[in-house]
């Protein structure tokens, strides 16, 4: 398959690599139909994230069609799914409390050492985001292997286009969480500093949570234009 691979600072290439295979019972293989570039992919591109290795496949915001499933997957061939970037097992203590980013098992045993050394505790696995988070191949590729596919992927109902659901993989929940952390109550006035994609999702989330008025703050006129379209 073709895949976007990292080779060093400011050096990413579209390479031909092996197609992914089902390796564990709960795996699924997804044929990618849409993928986004995240702001945090720039940190990889600019060489700020340690533990990247030449040939690592990038991409943690993606969706596609299920083409193959392991015997423990709950997905079915032909289903369209959005895949959240966190690789969580669904069975550990933290997953039981919906603390998926603290999953004990999504990160392979060998790569947990790095997080343990840096932070005192390993973190969950992520797609396409360095060996600190597992060294998993990402979704800026034609196909991807999705571990624990019975936990993360969201099956997309018919009638919704990729563009309407793709951002469930990362950036919409990121903006939503920012609004959630502000404990917004009906009738509140809310200010959002920074109106890039995350900020604009925070704006829309604030309205959904009942904010009466949202003030958008940014120094790029075109971002403020977009914010106005969302009633800011």
């Amino acid at each position: 398959m073709r895949a976007l691979t990292w080779h060093g600072k400011h050096d990413v290439r579209v390479d031909t690599v092996d197609d992914p295979e089902i390796l564990n019972p709960r795996d699924a293989i997804i044929r990618i139909t849409s993928t986004a570039i995240c702001g945090s992919d720039l940190h990889l591109y600019d060489g700020y994230i340690p533990t990247m290795q030449a040939g690592d496949i990038l991409g943690h915001e993606f969706m596609g069609e299920v083409v193959e499933t392991g015997p423990g997957s709950t997905l079915q061939k032909g289903q369209r799914v959005v895949v959240p970037f966190t690789i969580a097992c669904g069975s550990c203590y933290h997953c039981g409390k919906h603390q998926y980013s603290a999953c004990d098992n999504g990160n392979p045993a060998d790569n947990q050492d790095i997080g343990q050394e840096m932070y005192g505790q390993p973190m969950s696995g992520l797609f396409g985001y360095s060996h600190l988070t597992g060294g998993y191949a990402g979704g800026q590729a034609e196909y991807v292997r999705v571990p624990f596919s019975d936990v993360g992927p969201i099956v997309v109902p018919d009638g919704l286009d990729d563009d309407e659901v793709l951002f469930l993989s990362d950036i919409l929940p990121t903006g939503w969480q920012a609004a959630e952390n502000a404990d917004i109550e009906p009738g509140d006035t809310v200010a959002v500093w920074g109106c890039g994609p995350v900020g604009l999702f925070a704006v829309q989330s604030a309205f959904l949570m009942g904010a009466h008025r949202v003030i958008a703050i940014d120094h790029f006129p075109h971002r403020l234009e977009l914010a106005k379209k969302f009633r800011c």
């Binding site: 992914p20 295979e21 564990n24 019972p25 097992c89 004990d104 990160n107 045993a109 050492d113 998993y136």
Partner: peptide, 27 residues
Amino acid sequence: ARRDLRRFKQLMETGEVATAAWTQKQR
């Protein structure tokens, strides 16, 4: 020893041992 215990935990809690490989050859 630490890695063996982590893999034991993964196997007991999830039924499988997590791997970032994407082909059997890599694993």
